[in-house]
Design a protein around this nucleic acid. Structure first.
Lengths: 244, 244
DNA sequence: GTTCAAATCTGGTATAGACCAGATATACAA
DNA sequence: TTGTATATCTGGTCTATACCAGATTTGAAC
């Protein structure tokens, strides 16, 4: 058999060098958050590496949260992660702004439905209860970072479906005589489901952080259940646990 | 230029089919937790795909937490994730066992040191305070899932360095007149640092979950600071937040 | 200037083949 | 039976090349 390839140098860890190169540029602030990296092909030419090797390096940097990609648009330097402290009960807009970053919320869809068997059980309410399903996308510094699927108990928030639902719910609740009192949180590091990945404009199957949040009012009724899918590199969670 | 390749069929999503195939086998329990998958080369032959394509499918399943790899040993089906509820203050051994899984702890290293400038600040104690650095690996069902780096204040736990430190600290503390009272937790989804990845026997740069935990006693002194690096697919975290 | 179709650029997916290092199994010697 | 050297297997890294689909830019027509 003839071989028509160059030597493969199969264990030289070229992609680690590339990784170091970009890590250095980012640390030195030669590349700033939001900046676009050269295309995979350009990087390959510059470093005399194949695209596969270049992609491996970029994917490693992505796993480390230093860069991210936008489908068929290119690779970009990640903005810093936002710190989320659930116990403070601040709205997304509030805690992102306080950290000097610029939040945005888009309403993707809303739907008024009646609770079926499964949903009524989940929401601890009776069958037929009116529920509002919300689907929103939230961005920081123009980068989509989180997809939200919410289910609200409209019996506790009657008329809420007529509000501007791209606004903060946390701030809206007092007008309906409700406040978040207790919440149950579940965190899980998992691959983003296809739909969430599409909404975030990234490739499916990338690692992400899933947060499930059940919000109770003072009476212990469920106001709202919230499923959030975050870009893995966009958030740091801090929780304090006190007393016995 | 001559072309000596077969058509590349460059957008057929073959690896999604492979992904579905194994997902199905795992769901049907034709493949059980801990089972070894065929080698990448065997899978490639069976499905007439290149190894690169096969690897892409396997890596996607890995991101979803369904399978994991051991360096140069092969791919295996993941055991179910363990649920960790920090507020319950149960030991690792306790909450893993309660879920019907088998925990193990290995002490990798221990070192008695004196607090320098930085450490004393971190531990909120005076310079020169004796500290114990622990480095442990914990496994579930024989699979290493977490690397722990701990720093203990020996002034609060004098003589602890003579104990068997592969045992549960949580259970050991009462003997030293200490109990975990409050804790501050920070969660971050990030790539595993090289050292942690090596200790877990996996490739560096894979996504993981980093937990930082600061444990306080009743007097508000720091007993211990704990840095944990978890396999991303090995743990689900649940926290309840109550009261204002 | 505005509109819209075509060219171009970018990442996504894929084939074919290769060498390396660590883990494992095998066979042989003591 | 017990080591131990060796062959083999497996994933890890790499070259070279190709086509596809969506995003962006370009340029011509209006």
């Amino acid at each position: 058999m003839t071989t028509n390839s160059l030597p493969t140098d199969g264990n030289a860890n070229h992609y680690r060098h590339l990784e170091q190169h970009f890590r250095y540029l980012i640390n030195q602030e030669a590349l700033l958050p939001g900046d676009k990296l050269p295309s995979e092909r350009e990087i390959g030419e510059q470093f005399r590496l194949t695209r596969i090797t270049v992609r491996q390096a970029l994917q490693t940097l992505e796993a480390q949260g230093l860069i991210y990609r936008q489908n068929r648009r290119g690779w970009f330097v990640s903005p810093p992660a936002v710190i989320y402290k659930p116990a403070q009960r601040k709205s997304f807009v509030e805690y992102v702004s306080k950290q000097g970053l610029h939040p945005q919320t888009e309403l993707i869809s809303q739907e008024l439905i009646a609770a079926d068997q499964q949903l009524s059980k989940q929401m601890q309410t009776s069958k037929g209860t009116p529920l509002l399903k919300l689907h929103r996308r939230r961005s920081i510094e123009g980068r989509p970072v989180l997809i939200e699927h919410m289910i609200l108990n409209v019996n506790l928030l009657s008329g809420i479906e007529k509000e501007d639902l791209s606004q903060s719910l946390t701030r809206m609740l007092p007008r309906f005589g409700q406040t978040y009192h207790a919440m149950d949180l579940t965190f899980k590091s998992t691959a983003l489901p296809t739909s969430a990945a599409t909404d975030l404009g990234i490739a499916a199957g990338l690692p992400g952080l899933q947060i499930e949040r059940i919000n109770y009012n003072e009476s212990g009724e469920i106001i709202e259940i919230d499923y959030e899918y975050w870009r893995h590199d966009a958030v740091i969670i801090q929780v304090g646990i006190h007393g016995q």
